[in-house]
């Protein structure tokens, strides 16, 4: 495929050779004014098409730069009697680090994506980023509960629905030269086997409280959002996070692989390519 430079050089040669003079029967005949104008018009059109095609080809070959925002995965320990759950922040911190590492591992085996981990973010952006990622989790939940995933979240944009978290992080797009952000969010209500055994004994003797038991399990979402608008472009997820001991890296690699199983890969989110 021609590069932009190649197309420009070829175009000027084309104009010089084709529209200034034509070589007929061993001598140059100068083209008449109207013929020359038509010739220049046709050649210019050809040049424009060549330039656009080569620019698009170059853009398609450039990896898609994806900003990985701080993950928002919450971990809860279910109590022995199963009627309450306490958030375990230190465990969540370790799982979140493992989720980022697992995401990097996943994309390291696939070309076309340049991951930028959010350690590069300015600390002053922390509060807006946190609220925006919490909102993007709610947006992904809404889409997932509506039975929409993959690029279907974008297809619905052209109908009535608008799964977007808004443009609050748009300034990061220019600052980091990243058109899209990757958001990881989820939760896991975990009950260790030993606690379950004790819980069964305790619940046998204890009177039942009026409120419901805490449900085990959880979810993990991975969403690709356009930074300029906050539009959700792609959504993957899994609810297979129950019955998993928090062996962080193994856990993270398994759920990330599951959530990204249908990821299109390559520079698919190039503006105007897949999503006109």
């Amino acid at each position: 495929m021609l590069g932009t430079h190649g197309a420009a050089e070829q175009s000027s040669a084309l104009l010089r050779g084709a529209c200034t003079a034509s070589y007929r029967n061993g001598s140059y005949d100068w083209l008449r004014g109207s013929e020359r104008a038509l010739c220049i018009f046709v050649c210019s059109a050809v040049i424009l098409v060549l330039t656009a095609v080569s620019a698009a080809a170059e853009e398609a070959q450039r990896p898609l730069r994806v900003l990985v925002l701080p993950p928002n995965f919450h971990f809860f320990n279910i109590s022995v009697n199963e009627y309450s759950a306490a958030e375990n922040e230190s465990e969540a911190t370790r799982i979140n680090a493992a989720l980022v590492s697992a995401t990097q591992t996943f994309f390291s085996t696939r070309s076309g994506t340049d991951l930028l981990v959010s350690a590069a973010l300015d600390p002053s952006a922390a509060v807006p980023v946190t609220q925006w990622t919490l909102l993007s989790d709610a947006v992904m939940k809404a889409a997932w509960n509506g039975g929409v995933a993959g690029t279907g979240v974008w297809e619905l944009r052209r109908r009535a629905l608008d799964y977007t978290a808004g443009p609050a992080l748009a300034p990061l797009m220019d600052k980091l030269s990243a058109p899209v952000a990757l958001v990881i969010s989820g939760e896991n209500y975990y009950e260790p086997t030993s606690a379950r055994a004790l819980g069964n004994v305790a619940s046998f003797f204890a009177p039942s409280p009026s409120h419901k038991r805490v449900a085990k399990g959880g979810y993990l979402f991975i969403g690709i959002f356009e930074l300029a608008t906050g539009q959700l472009l792609w959504l993957g997820g899994t609810t297979a996070v129950d019955k998993l001991a928090p062996d962080h890296l193994e856990f993270a690699e398994r759920v990330v692989r599951e959530a990204l199983r249908d990821y299109p890969g390559g520079n698919w989110a190039r503006p105007g390519a897949v999503f006109p």
Binding site: A142, A143, N145, G146, G147, V148, L156, R159, L161
Partner: peptide
């Protein structure tokens, strides 16, 4: 084309 996603 008129189907809605949020139809629980």
């Amino acid at each position: 084309p008129f189907a809605r996603a949020w139809e629980p």
